[in-house]
Amino acid sequence: MQSSQRILLYNAMSESVFKRLLYCIFPRRCDLCGDVVPISSKRCDACLHCEKIEGEACEMCGMDKASCTCKDSHHKPEYEQIVAPFYYSDNAVKAVYRLKFNGYSELAVTMAEEIVKCIKKQYHNINFDCITYVPLSADREKARGYNQSRLIAEEISKMLNIPVEHTFYKAYENPPQRNQNARMRRANVFGAFDVNDGVNPQGKTYLVVDDVKTTGATLSECAAVLDSYGSTAVYTAVFAIRKKSARSTAG
């Protein structure tokens, strides 16, 4: 074996040993939910079996056709389409909750990776001018330490090389969306958002990002605001979509 090959082998072995020592001190965690996993695994078994949205999906609600109930709805969303990789169930709930409330900000990276797979598949023919995200009020963002939707949007921006625009601000502090029915959610977000000074949506095609879609009221309101300012089209993407029969703790 040549000396250069020995050096490469030694470096590789040293790196492997170093990683194992690190994992003894700082256990490896699932890249989706944050649970501790074996050194050889990136994702826990529960996250590997999270319920994915597969097959042909409805453009209005994002669910597969078998689960879609849009035919029973009288409210068409203002956005053009929504995509998501997972249903809001099982470990997807844990992942969102930990990102949103427990400070696991690093989970935004994997969530973005999963969303990007959907974007590349279903929005491959869309030329987005920018990516934006659902805003939080200043008080809520300060208490949480960050806006989880912004973190996800910024990671998607890096992966797709599409600029992030800090489009919206909260016009007033509305109550959290969780534990409200569909009608209350629509009323709760009506007029809640406006566009920041210096932002001009005229003629732009937007991708609006959020963590979870429950009824779609929040995303629809964001799309309506952009439409009122002259945007060309608004598409949306989230990490998880709640089925109508499931109970949600998301905002």
Rank of each mutant, 00 (worst) to 15 (best):
Q2P: 03
M13Y: 10
S14P: 00
V17C: 05
K19G: 01
C33D: 02
V36N: 05
C50L: 13
I53H: 02
I53Y: 00
A57W: 03
M60I: 05
K65D: 04
C68G: 11
K76F: 13
Y87D: 01
Y88W: 03
N91T: 09
V93D: 02
L99M: 09
K100S: 14
V109C: 04
T110N: 11
M111S: 03
A112G: 15
C118A: 02
K120L: 11
K120P: 02
Q122H: 15
I126T: 13
I126M: 00
F128C: 00
I131T: 01
T132G: 08
V134Y: 04
R140L: 06
Y146F: 15
Q148W: 01
M159F: 14
L160K: 02
N161E: 08
I162Q: 03
H166T: 03
T167A: 09
F168Q: 08
Y169N: 05
P176Q: 11
A182R: 15
R183Q: 10
R185I: 04
N188R: 00
D194V: 05
D197K: 14
N200C: 08
G203D: 09
T205R: 06
V209E: 04
D211G: 06
V212Y: 02
A217L: 01
S220M: 05
A223Q: 05
A224V: 09
L226N: 03
G230Y: 09
S231D: 13
V234G: 04
V234F: 09
T236S: 06
F239T: 00
A246D: 15
A250R: 08
G251P: 09
